[in-house]
């Protein structure tokens, strides 16, 4: 068989070209397909595309090609939505996790004298793009996560926690909803560090974060505010509910049985509670109120819960 000039050029392409007649029989394919599908053109010539590629989703494929025929316009299939259409092996068998070549596929109508006669399918190998994009996406996800998480305790860091508070605050103001804030600080934490070393202090912070995270509700946002201070945002929660949670936190921390070098470590916490009030125009106001209550709890002798003064009348 002698090849036309165009066929010779097509055979140099590092993309697949398949031409189908209107009954979806293969009337041409280039060298790329001969290699990757491991079938010479003469062996597939005039065969139905479904017989050569039984993996094709027939209903979808038919619908796609009908659109091309009826609207006389191209149609596309990207690896981002459908990793591959044709099960062709790829050239990076070791470094990628898929068995098949990732593909961008284009279907275009071929006309002769104003009459649609064929459909051309162009298959581009985008395995590399797919591989790097997938890696990039994973890295970005990891980065975004790392940006929100406190490295030591694995709970939200202050920056992200404050962003959450800003949002919840705005929502509560807009819908006139309840919002409570709990801030707590481990008692005499400096003493633990001084007596047992920073490794022990770190262990206490990690364990505290772990037990509190198990305790709070899914709608609450728990974060490390700084040092040995933690904070919980409680949306749709009034003062009674917030006090209930605060007392549970206090109790839970008092009950943790911690050992460091086989020596028991006792930890307690002082807790400040505040709820959103009419005079709170910025979320920082709420933090300031909870903070004031926290100092109150410390002043009253630690290991207890205190409510912001302006709220005492309501309790």
């Amino acid at each position: 068989m002698t090849l036309s000039f165009c066929e010779k050029v097509t055979n140099q392409l590092n993309s697949g070209v398949i031409v189908l007649d209107l009954d979806y029989r293969i009337v041409f394919w280039n060298n790329f397909l001969a290699i990757h599908a491991n079938k010479q053109f003469k062996d597939v010539c005039d065969l139905s595309v479904y017989d050569v590629f039984p993996e094709l989703p027939k209903r979808w494929f038919e619908r796609k090609l009908n659109g091309v025929k009826q609207l006389n316009s191209p149609s596309f299939c990207s690896w981002e939505q459908r990793h591959h259409l044709f099960e062709l092996p790829h050239t990076r068998p070791i470094t990628t996790d898929s068995h098949y070549m990732a593909q961008n596929v284009t279907f275009t109508p071929i006309e002769d004298k104003g009459q649609l006669t064929h459909i051309c399918i162009l298959i581009e190998d985008v395995t590399d793009v797919c591989h790097y994009q997938t890696m990039l996406r994973k890295t970005l996800d990891d980065l975004a996560m790392a940006n929100r998480i406190d490295g030591l305790t694995q709970v939200y860091n202050r920056k992200h926690w404050e962003e959450c508070l800003a949002q919840e605050f705005a929502r509560a103001r807009r819908y006139d909803a309840d919002l409570a804030l709990i801030m707590f600080d481990l008692d005499h934490f400096k003493r633990i560090n001084d007596n047992y070393g920073h490794q022990c202090g770190d262990m206490v912070l990690i364990e505290t974060a772990k037990v509190i995270e198990e305790l709070i509700r899914i709608s609450d946002t728990f974060g490390r505010y700084g040092g040995e201070e933690f904070a919980v945002i409680l949306p749709e929660t009034g003062i009674a509910g917030a006090l209930d949670v605060a007392e549970k936190i206090r109790q839970r921390i008092e009950d943790i049985a911690l050992l460091f070098n086989e020596e028991p470590i006792n930890v307690t916490t002082s807790i400040g509670v505040a709820t959103i009030g009419d005079d709170d125009f910025r979320y920082e106001d709420l933090i300031a109120h909870a903070d004031q209550a926290l100092y109150e709890a410390k002043a009253l002798g630690r290991n207890q819960v205190a409510v912001n003064k302006t709220l005492i009348a309501c309790v």
């Binding site: 619908r63 659109g67 609207l71 006389n72 316009s73 990207s78 939505q81």
Partner: peptide, 26 residues
């Protein structure tokens, strides 16, 4: 005319977009 679940929502969006764009511009 797809069956529910036959195509991801993203793929449907891509499909209809391509149809609208190419039909008009052709």
């Amino acid at each position: 005319g797809y069956e529910p679940g036959e195509l991801s929502e993203e793929e449907q969006l891509i499909d209809i977009s391509s149809i609208l764009t190419t039909t008009f511009l052709n």
